[in-house]
């Protein structure tokens, strides 16, 4: 009987890599295509947030930057750090690493908020000639990136963090 998935780390890195690959086009291509009477506007994730900040909606700009830039990047870093750290037995900080894992698992889903905003906006703002909002290609890549990083975090076996401690005790 085996109590550990021997391929856990391989799966983590595979999902991580695909997620990261999707995250790049998600930031390069436009997320929203806004067509009003006089102009045709395409904005990327960061561009849209900057625009909002210029209009004075600092709070919303902050939420969007947090959910679609800061959290995904922090998540890539955290999962990579955890996966690297379990390779070295006795890396220490077991409690804080475990807490980090729980935060990553909890917070990763919230990146989906940007996709939902795009979905709501582009179904709501269909006002014939006056204004139209449509989703851009980045929305697809962003959703995939969030899904893949969630799978990456789920593939990580949090018990690996504590296995190092058990080995240290056994040898002492």
């Amino acid at each position: 009987m085996k109590s550990r998935d021997a391929n856990s780390l391989q799966k983590v890195w595979a999902w991580w890599l695909v997620g990261f690959m999707c995250y790049i086009p998600a930031n390069v291509y436009p997320m929203l295509q806004t067509r009003t009477l006089f102009q045709n506007d395409q904005s990327t994730i960061i561009g849209g947030a900057v625009e909002l900040a210029q209009y004075g909606s600092w709070g919303i700009a902050f939420i969007i930057l947090l959910a679609s830039v800061a959290i995904p990047l922090a998540k890539f870093w955290a999962v990579a750090y955890l996966a690297l750290s379990v390779r070295r037995p006795g890396a220490g900080f077991n409690n804080s690493r475990h807490l980090m894992y729980e935060i990553v698992e909890y917070i990763g889903r919230w990146s989906m908020i940007d996709i939902f905003v795009v979905a709501i906006l582009s179904s709501l703002v269909q006002l014939n000639t006056l204004a139209n909002i449509n989703p851009g290609p980045a929305s697809m890549f962003f959703a995939l990136s969030v899904i893949f990083t969630m799978l990456s975090a789920q593939a990580f076996d949090s018990r690996l963090i504590w296995d190092g401690q058990a080995k240290d005790k056994g040898s002492a």
């Binding site: 909002l52 889903r109 989906m112 939902f116 905003v117 703002v125």
Partner: peptide, 26 residues
């Protein structure tokens, strides 16, 4: 469980509302 995102959709609504608030009456 992690794939059930109703509460995230609700917050997304709030963000979307603020975004269109100056464009139209919602």
């Amino acid at each position: 469980r992690p794939w059930s995102m109703a509460e995230i959709f609700a917050l997304g609504c709030a963000v979307a509302l603020v975004k269109v608030a100056d464009l139209a009456t919602v």
